[in-house]
Design a protein around this nucleic acid. Sequence first.
DNA 1: TTTATTTAGGATATTTTTCTCCAATTCTAA
DNA 2: TTAGAATTGGAGAAAAATATCCTAAATAAA
Lengths: 142, 142
Amino acid sequence: MIYTKTGEYAIRAILFLARQSKDSLIMSSEIAKSEDIPAHYLAKILQRMAKYGYVDSFKGRGGGFKITELAKKSSILEIVERVEGPVINLKCVTGLKECSEENPCPLHDEWADLRNRIYNLISSKSVQEVAEKYSETLRKHK
Amino acid sequence: MIYTKTGEYAIRAILFLARQSKDSLIMSSEIAKSEDIPAHYLAKILQRMAKYGYVDSFKGRGGGFKITELAKKSSILEIVERVEGPVINLKCVTGLKECSEENPCPLHDEWADLRNRIYNLISSKSVQEVAEKYSETLRKHK
DNA sequence: TTTATTTAGGATATTTTTCTCCAATTCTAA
DNA sequence: TTAGAATTGGAGAAAAATATCCTAAATAAA
């Protein structure tokens, strides 16, 4: 896909946290169970997100994670790129070695357009907006 | 990206063969060198493409590969999927576990649209068409 | 017929990604 | 202050993707 499993887990986790009622702490293991993500692996990802300030972490009994304001205002793309590195590969779809504006591959322009749209799709909305829209959908389809 | 390195190598190789003058045989090692692909790895990929009938292979001195009519008429997507399995992941961009028409994730519709466009981009043109357009570009920019 | 050349195919190595385990640390509650 | 619960961080196992190596088979030319 566009990002790896690691990135996908990060998104699922942050959107999960974004949907929780304010100030509630959620354990890593709980997220793992709800979202069906390998528990220890997710713990690592959350650790990294904590380092980057996307979640606050609390140790000990009653501890867990909660989303930060920074994460709420960030785009999905920003978070994923922090967690797993550059996401959208700039290579052309045909995979040709030399493909540039001056020397475009046959599908260059069309692909450049799509790439931009994908980029916009995952970078123009904030995590909070996406999460809200999602909660809404969940309510409607209950 | 949308496909893996293996798929990318397959595309580069088939488009390379498609640009050759008719009936000329090209050695695996030659393609590898021109396209900067690991030689032995490419050999495997060509082997598979031969099995699927996308290239004809000839052993011994003066041997090599050439593209078949089947491959010329096929789309890039078809060939890649044969070589490396399903390409376009149907999961939603947000990576949410349950995302369907009835229960769409926040970006479902927009993503479905983009997915279709990507799908069209690499499946609506034949290898031959893409190769011709590319040869043209190469001529212009010489 | 022999030799050199090229693909075929199997085995294996390397690298990257994904996943697991364990001990250390921090914090809460009893 | 102690026990238990939770994250942290390091180490490394497992799986998947990528890359290499070697021998066999086929073919063409000497």
